[in-house]
Computed example of a mutant assay.
Amino acid sequence: MRSTIGRAGQASTSKIIFGLMILFCPIVFSSAVSQARASDSLVVADQGAEINFCGTILDEMFWGPPGFGETPAVDIKWRAWMLALDKPLKVQFTNAYKKTVAGEFVKIQVRPDDLLDRKAAQLLHHRVHIIGKLWSASVASDETPVTLWPRQIDQSSQGCDR
């Protein structure tokens, strides 16, 4: 009689385990899918966060003062380095002026110092890896709502978050 109860107990336990697997597998699977989707788009929540970016360095011209393109005869033009990102970048943070900066960007302005400016010129139209910090636009020459202040620019594409 013991062996019959033991087998019945094993059968019940197996049914319970099978039932739990059916119940929880979709939850675990959907959680894994959600995490994979979330990792497809990096969300930056802190202004000044240092991130590894990959993309193509572009050189774009923009109109400046006094009319910012409304009076081309007297308006100046300036060059801005842009990074066409390999993958979109989602950003949401509060800037120094207590305003929320949010959006999804496929291109951001790169604001290199003099040394990195020469390096960006050498890598124009090449795929690059940039380590830098994101900041919200704050001056008239900021051409995108979010700007990238690079610490390092290389032609290698290893180690990119974006």
Results as ranks from 00 to 15, higher is better:
Thr13Glu: 12
Ser14Phe: 10
Lys15Pro: 00
Ile16His: 07
Ile16Gln: 08
Ile16Asp: 07
Ile17Ser: 11
Ile17Phe: 14
Phe18Lys: 14
Phe18Thr: 13
Gly19Thr: 06
Gly19Pro: 06
Leu20Val: 10
Leu20Pro: 07
Met21Lys: 11
Met21Ile: 14
Ile22Pro: 07
Ile22Val: 15
Leu23His: 01
Phe24Asn: 06
Cys25Pro: 00
Cys25Val: 15
Pro26Phe: 03
Pro26Gln: 01
Ile27Val: 15
Ile27Ser: 08
Ile27Asn: 03
Ile27Asp: 01
Val28Trp: 10
Val28Thr: 12
Val28Gly: 05
Phe29Met: 09
Phe29Trp: 09
Phe29Ile: 14
Phe29Gly: 03
Ser30Arg: 00
Ser30Tyr: 08
Ser31Cys: 05
Ala32Glu: 04
Ala32Lys: 08
Ala32Gly: 09
Val33Met: 11
Val33Cys: 10
Ser34Lys: 07
Ser34Cys: 09
Ser34Glu: 05
Ser34Trp: 05
Ser34Arg: 04
Ser34Gly: 12
Gln35Asn: 14
Gln35Ile: 09
Ala36Leu: 15
Ala36Cys: 12
Ala36His: 12
Ala36Val: 12
Ala36Glu: 09
Arg37Pro: 03
Arg37Val: 14
Arg37Cys: 13
Arg37Gln: 13
Ala38Asp: 13
Ala38Met: 08
Ser39Glu: 14
Ser39Asn: 13
Ser39Tyr: 12
Ser41Asn: 06
Val43His: 08
Val43Trp: 01
Val43Ser: 10
Val44Leu: 14
Val44Met: 08
Val44Gly: 10
Val44Gln: 05
Val44Asp: 09
Ala45Asn: 15
Asp46Cys: 06
Asp46Gln: 14
Asp46Ile: 10
Gln47Ser: 15
Gly48Ile: 03
Ala49Cys: 06
Ala49Pro: 07
Glu50Leu: 11
Glu50Asn: 11
Asn52Ile: 00
Asn52Val: 04
Asn52Phe: 12
Asn52His: 13
Phe53Asp: 02
Cys54Ile: 07
Gly55Met: 03
Gly55Asp: 02
Thr56Glu: 14
Ile57Pro: 07
Ile57Gly: 03
Ile57Tyr: 02
Leu58Cys: 03
Leu58Asp: 07
Asp59Phe: 05
Glu60Cys: 00
Glu60Ala: 11
Glu60Asp: 11
Met61Gln: 13
Met61Phe: 10
Phe62Trp: 09
Phe62Met: 04
Gly64Met: 00
Gly64Ile: 00
Pro65Leu: 00
Pro66Trp: 01
Pro66Lys: 02
Gly67Leu: 06
Phe68Glu: 00
Phe68Tyr: 15
Phe68Arg: 01
Gly69Asn: 08
Gly69Lys: 06
Gly69Cys: 09
Thr71Val: 11
Thr71Gln: 11
Ala73Met: 06
Ala73Val: 10
Val74Leu: 10
Val74His: 01
Val74Trp: 01
Ile76Trp: 03
Ile76Cys: 04
Ile76Lys: 11
Lys77Pro: 00
Lys77Asn: 02
Lys77Asp: 01
Lys77Gly: 02
Trp78Thr: 06
Arg79Phe: 02
Arg79Gly: 05
Ala80Tyr: 02
Ala80Gly: 15
Ala80Met: 10
Ala80Cys: 12
Trp81Phe: 15
Trp81Lys: 04
Met82Ala: 07
Met82Ser: 05
